[in-house]
Write a protein that binds this DNA or RNA. Structure first.
Lengths: 346, 346
DNA sequence: TCCGTTTATAAAACCGGTTTAATCTATTCG
DNA sequence: CGAATAGATTAAACCGGTTTTATAAACGGA
């Protein structure tokens, strides 16, 4: 394809003039501009993105970084993604999704600086190496979810208040008279599961209800949400018949619980209340019964993260910022007062 | 950050030696390699991705291109995306999602060659300018969905057999005795809606059932699927009480139909059969009644598209290929024989 | 009219890598 | 022992842009 030199030659000007015409960083007379653009059109010339990036030291691309290897985007990720893309599109940024495993990236022939101006990190885990990595490389960074430990105060992040969310749903169920509440939490290691778990325990503690570790189960990352919800709730229902409420990490997980309950002849919400951390409105409302849940506003999270990051990239301002996105509990019909029998069980 | 020159100086070798150590394209003695890597580690050096791309004329990045501006990824797109990412991750490619509008990209200061080795195009429409664009730039290209008109034979694409799918669901409903079948099709202009619409009409024709244009409605792109499904089916049910079956473009759209039917006191599948082109299994099975639909295997589509594209990029082989991904109709419970009353209506 | 500015364009250096062609050793073979 | 050859390393050119610095032309004021 044609290069800037070809255009310069054809238009009878120097390459720096052509450069100025396209970058618009220096004024070029109307007449010459026309001539250059005409030559470019004739040669079907477009500036080379990478040559530009090399000289400009900026790409107008931000990265979206999945945690482990071969992780699939969930419904929640989809919301995040839509939010991020919406912000990108209005700010003129592209989004690079990096799903390459660390082992791959660390092989000598693939070793390279990430080709982005900044990175959004999804699903931070305890002691997340990705964060230290970005900090060392001085790459602008925004985490979606709370970074663990020392990093919490060192990097910008966007999150819901998950401790509060965990507390809120637990308190809500406690208020309905439930005492034995099973929590199907996100995978162990994720800070989101730690936070929600903490909120859950705090609410129990405050209500004087003893915490039973058997009622706090972490998702197996190798299982789908619905399979996990089904398998674990089925087992738990059989083993602990005094459970009257279940909190699930996602709406799909709740679907698994619905299935297990149906098979066991347990009525929702009559015998069992179910509440989910959720981002799906359309389907949740159509389940039987409609699923009560806490809306997380993933799109808002994504948009806000992208905004913070792009702001950092544009302004060069590395100050650490934090955004907590408000959530909203939506009562739909899967929670009810605890059955009297169960309340006396313990 | 440290550059290749810094490393060369520190290690006491030339920059071309350092380059060879990292690119592994030329043998370097073990001893020198060690020395270079040590220097790199010490300086925290990583090769600059952009400089590399510039010199190599390849980026190991493929693009994913949304159609218009500010379009949100749907559940189906999510499946595609997961398929694409899975293939990317195993081939060592990154994925660049471009959601920038054409008008933006055509402004002089933003004008540039796409920074990718090839592009995947989603949701082709009639006379899609994006395709001609890529062809002119000689950029490897794979379309997900059938490209329109002349392009069908000129570019590689991956698709379901949508004409057949349209025919199949219509025939299925006809076989159940339905004669007045409302088709809530995808947006006008998309080739997928044209194809399914064609299959629908062919099935009707073959069965000797007259085609009523009022029963073929295209989605309004400004409405959500479920809102559209709700609004249109509500109106249609009132206006054409002889409708006994509805085909919807997506499962979310079917949810809208469920809602409209419930409000009108119409039983599914007793009074009204519903069938959807679908990619969502978990929720579809949990609706009341469980939603019958045609699984499209979006993940397979995405994976195959990425495979074709990366193959083109790696081999330089521009031959036009096509992959049709098999679909599968899953009967769940939202379709039944047409009610007798309605069958005599017409 | 002449000189100091301003304005438009050009030449050359630069961004940070890769690659070709040249150089310098070390080895092999007649 | 000298020439041919192979192997490792390097100098210099190159990828396609941007930017700094230089130059030429146009303009304005004294």
């Amino acid at each position: 394809m044609a290069t800037i030199d070809d255009v310069a030659r054809t238009a009878g000007v120097s390459k720096s003039t052509v450069s100025s015409v396209f970058s618009q960083k220096r004024p070029i007379s109307k007449e010459v501009t026309e001539r250059v653009l005409a030559a470019a059109r004739q040669l079907d010339y477009k500036p080379n993105y990478w040559a530009r990036s090399l000289a400009n030291k900026t790409t107008r691309i931000i990265g979206l970084n999945m945690p482990g290897e071969r992780v699939k985007f969930s419904l929640f990720h989809l919301s995040l993604l839509n939010g991020v893309l919406s912000e990108c599109s209005s700010s003129g940024y592209r989004l690079l999704v990096n799903s390459l495993s660390r082992t791959y990236l660390d092989e000598v022939p693939h070793l390279a600086k990430e080709p982005v101006d900044g990175d959004i990190l999804l699903d931070p885990v305890e002691g997340d190496v990705r964060i230290a990595d970005r900090i060392r490389q001085k790459l602008p960074l925004v985490v979606i979810g709370r970074p663990s430990g020392e990093f919490e105060s060192k990097v910008s992040y966007v999150d819901n208040d998950n401790v509060e969310n965990g507390r809120q749903v637990t308190e809500y169920l406690l208020g309905l008279g439930h005492r034995r509440i099973l929590f199907l939490n996100a995978s162990a290691g994720k800070t989101v599961s730690a936070d929600r778990g903490l909120g859950y325990r705090r609410a129990l503690e405050q209500a004087g209800v003893p915490f039973d570790p058997q009622l706090l189960v972490h998702k197996d990352p190798n299982q789908t949400s619905s399979d996990f919800g089904y398998a674990v709730s089925k087992k738990a229902i059989a083993k602990h018949p005094d459970i009257t409420a279940i909190i699930t990490d996602t709406d799909k997980m709740a679907v698994g619980v619905y299935k297990a309950a149906a098979e066991a002849g347990i009525a929702i919400p009559g015998d069992l209340s179910v509440i989910a951390f959720s981002d799906e409105t359309v389907f949740a409302a159509e389940l039987h019964p409609p699923l009560t849940g806490v809306k997380l506003f993933g799109e808002e999270l994504g948009r806000e993260a992208a905004k913070l990051l792009i702001d950092q990239c544009v302004s060069g301002n590395r100050s650490v910022k934090r955004a907590l996105i408000a959530t909203e509990m939506v009562e739909r019909g899967s929670c009810a007062a605890a059955p009297v029998r169960a309340a006396t069980d313990h």
